[in-house]
């Protein structure tokens, strides 16, 4: 692993909301093609890490680099353009738009025609639309959604909404994909499908993935490395085997999960 190129790097990232230190000294080196898991109890700061990496929150400390260039201070859409895409813990689709439009909306930044060609419907307008359409359909087929293209996103079943959200993220042509609890609320069949999905993405795209997930068996199965957060601090990081045997992790996370069984997630 060590000889591989580092794609995404976070150095001492930290943020506090008023008095609350939500994340402290978060470090990450995500290599090309790697899949790293980010786990920890509820409220540990996992989503907050994503929000800092994607520019939703401006970190109060630390630096973030994508392929060596600093992303601090950039706006969300600029960071997307640089190559980091994400999904959300609570699915965020364009609900009143069709499945096809959801994906095509993510091509907005790549479509070159301007206002003149739009209004005149000339000079490559249709070529651009056609190629966007074709690429969108390719992505949808990858997730078995091609027949649902004219459906409104809000009318899809839950599992397919998750897939659509991932398809939309992929449409931004990213280098790094951040998935925030993609299996949350899924039944075992849907989770298995999601797993196939993630494997497929890794084969098809040269993408590095950072995955937040509560389903420990899924994390242990597919992640190459795992980072464990608790109260905003990184308490462990290593291979799944190392994490499974780590005392602090068991105390902070696995132990707590037993107590919390049945409570809100």
């Amino acid at each position: 692993m060590s000889e591989q190129k580092i794609v995404l790097q976070a150095e001492h990232l930290g943020i506090h909301f008023g008095g609350l230190k939500a994340v402290d000294d978060f470090n990450l080196e995500l290599c090309e093609g790697e899949l790293v898991g980010l786990i920890g109890p509820n409220g540990a700061g996992k989503t907050t890490v994503f929000n800092m990496l994607t520019g939703v929150y401006e970190p109060t400390e630390g630096k973030e680099y994508l392929l060596g260039s600093c992303l601090n201070g950039k706006k969300v859409y600029q960071i997307v353009a640089a190559g980091i895409a994400r999904t959300f813990q609570n699915i965020r689709l364009f609900r009143e738009m069709t499945v096809l439009e959801n994906v095509m909306a993510a091509f907005t930044k790549d479509i070159k025609y301007g206002m003149g060609r739009t209004l005149a419907r000339s000079g490559g307008f249709w070529q651009e639309e056609e190629s966007a359409y074709t690429r969108a359909m390719e992505l949808l087929s990858l997730f078995g959604l091609q027949d649902k293209k004219a459906e409104l996103a809000t009318n899809l079943p839950y599992g397919q909404q998750r897939k659509l959200e991932i398809a939309r993220a992929l449409a931004t042509d990213m280098k790094v994909l951040l998935l925030d609890e993609p299996a949350a609320g899924m039944n075992p069949t849907e989770t298995a499908e999601l797993l196939d999905c993630i494997n497929l993405i890794r084969q098809k795209f040269h993408v590095s993935i950072l995955l937040i997930e509560h389903d420990m068996s899924l994390v242990m199965k597919i992640c190459e490395r795992i980072i464990v957060l608790d109260y905003g601090c990184t308490i462990a990081s290593g291979t799944p085997a190392e994490i499974a045997g780590n005392k602090r992790v068991i105390a902070a996370y696995l132990g707590e999960e037993d107590e919390e069984e049945g409570s809100v997630c």
Binding site: Y77, F94, A105, K109, T118
Partner: peptide, 25 residues
């Protein structure tokens, strides 16, 4: 009926997700 329309409808449905889809809202 163009990328502009898709972008503004995306903003209507979810501004945060629009930014995350690379749209300069």
């Amino acid at each position: 009926r163009s990328k502009y329309g898709r972008a503004i409808k995306a903003i209507r449905d979810d501004e945060i997700a629009s930014e995350a889809a690379g749209i300069n809202t």
